[in-house]
Each structure stands twice: as C-alpha cells, then as structure tokens.
Design a protein around this nucleic acid. Sequence first.
DNA 1: CAATATGATGTTTTT
DNA 2: CATCATATTG
Length: 725
Amino acid sequence: MSNPIVQQLNPSQRRAVQTVDGPVLIIAGPGSGKTMVITHRIAYLVDTIQISPFQILAVTFTNKAANEMRDRLVNLIRGKAHAVTVKTFHAFCSSVLRRYGKHIGLGSDYTIFDSEDQRDALKMAMEEVEVDPKRYPIRGIQSAISRAKSTMLDVHRFKTKGQSFYDEIVGKVYGSYERILSANNGVDFDDLLLKTLIIFKSQPSVLEQYQKRFFHVMVDEFQDTNIVQYQLAKILSGSFRNLCVVGDPDQAIYSWRNADIRNILSFQQDFPDAALIELEENYRSTGNILDVAKGLISANKQRIEKKIWTVKERGSHIVVHECFTGKEEANFIMEEINRLMTKKNRMLNDVAIMYRINAQSRALEEACLRYGIRYRIIGGVRFYHRREVKDLISFLRVINNPGDQISLLRVINIPPRGLGTRSIEKIIMCSRREHLSVYEVIQGIIEGNIPEHQLSSRSLKALEGFFLTIEELRVSAGVIDISQTIEMLLEKIGYRNYLEQTGNLEDRWDNILELKGMAQEFISGDSSGDLTALLEHLALVSDVDTLKENSDGITLITLHQAKGLEFPVVFMTGMEEGLLPHYRSMDSEEGIEEERRLCYVGITRAKQELYMTRAFRRGLMGSSGSSIPSRFLQEMPQDLLSGPQLIRQKSRYAQVIKDTDILEDEVEEIPMPVLKTGDKIEHKIFGNGIIISLSGNSFDQEVVVAFKDAGVKRLLLGYAPIEKV
DNA sequence: CAATATGATGTTTTT
DNA sequence: CATCATATTG
C-alpha cells in the first residue's frame, strides 16, 4: 500500500499501474497523466513484481516519446531502465528485420525507403508496366499500396481481392513495385511492419524467441495504430497475454496513415477479459480550456462518450482573434507574446504556435525574425528532405548498399558530371538486358565486360569517375569512421563548389554541417555506430524527435506533431474553413470528425492560455481567396470565448445585429452601432460608401456596399474594417 | 546530348 | 511559391 511508486497516483491511475495480470485497456483522456502511468507501471513491474526489465517491451508513437519515456524511467528505476525495450513499432521491426530478414530474402544492409524514394520506385514501376502517371497519379497509387500493406494484403491477395478497374491497375504497379524494392534490397515504412509480421507468422522459432522474451507488452497511442501494428502487438504478447494498450479515441488523428480506431473494439473482442481502466481527471489545462475542448468534441457523432474533468481554476477566457491577412495574424501573435512576457512573466519556452499545414509556418517564421523572437521550428520543409541533405544521404546509401538503385540514380549526376537522361537511359537498358543491378552494370561497363553500352566516350569517362569515387569510398568506409567518410565524400565530389554555383551556399552548407554533426553525435552515442545503423536512424527519426526542449524559444509546430506535448500558452492559427477543417477532408463526415479531433488535440495541449486566430485573406498557394471562420469555433461554448466575432465584444468594427440574433441576456452588452440599409460607412481601404443591402446571420453578416471610388463590394462584417460615419 | 530557362501546375497531416 | 515538365539553348 505504501509503495512509493503508487503513492502519488489517483485511484484510477493506481489501478492502471497495479493491474499487471493479463490484458488491460486504458482509455486516457488528455492530460490525464498517461505517460506517468505507463512509466510507473513499468517501474512497478520491475521493482515491486520483480520482472526483469529485459522482459518488457513498450511501444511508442514517436522516437521522441520513446526517449522521454526512457528518461523518466531512469528517474524511477535508474540503470535498469536501459534494459527495457522502448521503441517505435518501426524501429522495433527494423531491428527484427536486421537480424532475421534473411528468412524472407532480405539482406541485412537493406535501405529504408522514405516516401520520396517510394515515389521514385513507383515511377519506375509504372514505366515498367506501362501505367501512365498522368492518368493515374502516383500519390493515389502510393496510398493505395500503403493501404494494402497496412491491411495485410500482399500483391497476390490484393489481386485476388481487388474488384475495380483501378484495383487492377494498382495491382499491376504493386507487383512491379515489389520487384523493384527487392531488387534494390529496400523496404518501405509499411514493409518494416508487414515483413516483421510475416516473419513472426512463418518462422515459429523466431516468434517464440520474442514471445518468450517479452513477458509484458505495452502500446502507447493505441488509437493511432494500424491493423498490422495491432497484429504485431497481439502476436508478440501471445504466450503470456500481458498486453496493455493505452489510448484515447478522441485523439485519433492518423486514419490517413491507415490507423484504425476499430483496433480498440477488436482488442475488446479479442480479449473479453481485459481490464478496462479510464483516466478521466485532467491535470493539465484550466477549466475553461477543458470545457471548450469538451464542447467541441461533443459535436462528433461517432464517439464514445467520455468524462473528463479537472479541479483546476477556470483560468482565462479563450481569446479568439481575427485578422485581415496571415501576416497580420502573425504580427498579432508576436505582439501578444511580447505582452505575455512583460506582463505575465512568460518565457519563450512557454509558448507554442500551432497550425494545420506546414505552409502556414512561413509567415510565422518571418514574423519571429521581424520581432526578434527566438523560435524553433519542426518540419517546415523537412530537414531530411532538403535537397542537399537528401543528396548526401543518398550517397551514403549507395556506399552502404550499392544495390539501392533509387539512390544511385539520384546521385549519379550530382554534381553534374555529364551523365544526362540519355546516358542514364542507356545504363538502365543495359541493366535490363543483362539482368544485373545498375551498379553491377556500371562496374561491368568500366571493366570492359559489357561492350554494347552505346555510351559516348565522354559519358564513359564521367561514369568511370563516378564509379571510382564510390568504390574508393566503399573501401575506405570499412576503415575510417562515418564523419570522415562524409568529409571524404564531400571533398571527392566537390560538393561545396557545386553548392557555390547553385547559389545560397550558406544555408545549404549549414545543413550539410548539421547532418555531419548529427552523424558525429550518433557514432559517439550508444549504438554500434556503423553506417547501416546511422542510415536506419536517419530514416526513422522524425523531425519532432529533434525538438530540443531546453533551448530558449517559442515552438512552431503542426497540430499533428503537437500530439503528446503540452505548453502553458498555445496559439492555434488558421481557424478557417478549408484549413481546419482542411478542405481535403471536408467531403466526408468522417473526415470532418477527424479534423475536429485534431482541433481537440490542439486545444488540449494548452495549460493556461489559449488563443485561436484566423485571417480573412490568406496568402496560401499564390493568390488567396477570402475565408470564413472554422465551424469548430461555432461549436465551442461561446461564453468561454472572447473575440470580435462574438456579440459581446470590444471590437473596433461595426456590427450588425438583427432582431432574431439578439440573445436576451447579452443585449445590454452590445456597444456597437447597428447598421442598416442606406447608412453611410467608411472602409479602411475602399473609403466612403453606402450600404445597399444586408444579409446572412450574425455570424457571417454579409453586406453589400457601394463605394464612392472602389465600386460595389460584397464584404463580411466583423472582418471588414468598416466604421459608421 | 546535356544544361539551363521558362512556363505550367498543383499543394495535409508523418513513421 | 516551388517543384516539375517541356522548350530552348549551348
């Protein structure tokens, strides 16, 4: 009872920690101490029940979550924490495949293809089976194949199951794509999971080894696992049945990655005896924030009702602010941050700005620079996808796995050495004809074993230079360490010089140095430090993982990346129809509900202050249209919000109130003049005008104004800077 | 035949 | 607005 591990926990948390026999389902609301429960549960298993830490597997959603969990475990159980396996599904599977991939014909130096590589491979595949990428966009095929793999359909089963004509096309490409992958000794993200599952199912001895080892299996963010991941968790815990999953259906935001909330239902069916534990008390957010979140999420129809509550104070109102442009939105936020710092003693670290899409970050970044506010940004143009970084990684991949043709072809002419599309085509032809990998063909040509290459002597010379460079690096890579290899590579191909010619050298070179630094850090870390391990690390670390908590600055982050994090002050930007909810999700009810959950996730990141902003015009993708407020704003309890779209506001803007829209108890709080047809008004930009007509409800009041100079305009009141004259 | 310039074209979220 | 594909130039 007086066990120190459980002392500070509330009763449900304690139950979650101490229920260690058999299957357990923990439904954990936001801020309910989920991570604490998981770490304490592990500590309890190790210190109280005396389970060997070596026999515990904890699966997390991101590497960052894994690291954080490990850190917290160290505090609880000291050195024993390092014996616990804490990994993402992908990282765990990768380690299994490195060891046992040979059972399914996978060499241990396989390359992990990210979605960009995947696209290149698909292009090749489509060419091979003559599917026109114009008619059948790669993205669509990519996601169809991913969906297939996430639901355990291999090429054969996909082909027999598929019905539509499109399925037939996808089936063809899928088959060719798989051949290309295996020829490259490459796997994509989905393969990491699926191939591991296949090994477990087909190699009883391998499975048994893992099953015997992991006495306890825990899965975090269970609502965002896909079917393969669930199968993995189930099969791994097969011999002891000690599977504990933790999740929150209201925070499921990855269905587009084939996560399947139904896993929670499947779990309850598969384990009818599972203990169900609900964590309802929120320790993170103020009462107002939590109530806004609750109000919003209750608009979802497909939902299991869940209680969440807090004993915390009401806290500040949620501020809703509307601006003319994205730039103004950013400026407002900066001003507000400055105010919070001087008036409320906030630190930059306390603040996060969240957005739906990465493209929104640009305006915010620029504003940070203007205002001299330090910031750290996650993603944006993802670091690992930047051209120069990708170039370097591709070179390293070729050195590590010459069978990786995708990477090879990407860098064969970098920097330009006179091997254009034509020459490359010829090389590929050779490789088809001789049934050799591209690298083998190149070797053959150089060594004179393949005379019918048809390459000009100039191209031949260039090719030889390329080949010798790679060979030299491959040989020396075995002796010198990785950062020296990188150094040598950059030197040999004259990469710096190349960047100099292409312009903006500084930024790009900085990125190269950063990657080099990362490699350095990696080899001095606890891993084996070889090239294979580094490349695996680079493929599997996400950008969120690199978020440095200690450095001083505000955080710019997408709503998706923000899952699992918390900040005292949160700004949610772009609260507009089309952005949140995103227009690509707006054609289905499920899509909208997922967007709503995403919004819910954002809100519940906030501990004390929450702002929601929107812009009337946003400069996304070239020209911009005007936007209307996100429906989610209207779904929140209005009395907890304060801002100009509300009736009780201290806006500088005029506001029209129609009789039917006046809420009785708020009438006296309306300070604004009421506009009617014929009123003379003045617009900040368009100048003087007369109101011709009014329409719409109080939320999007539309007014038609005849301006003296600017002609007749339709405007939305509340956003249009209009004043009655 | 390779490299560059220009124009069109399409943009969520990520392991 | 930034990438991609095609046209043009060297």
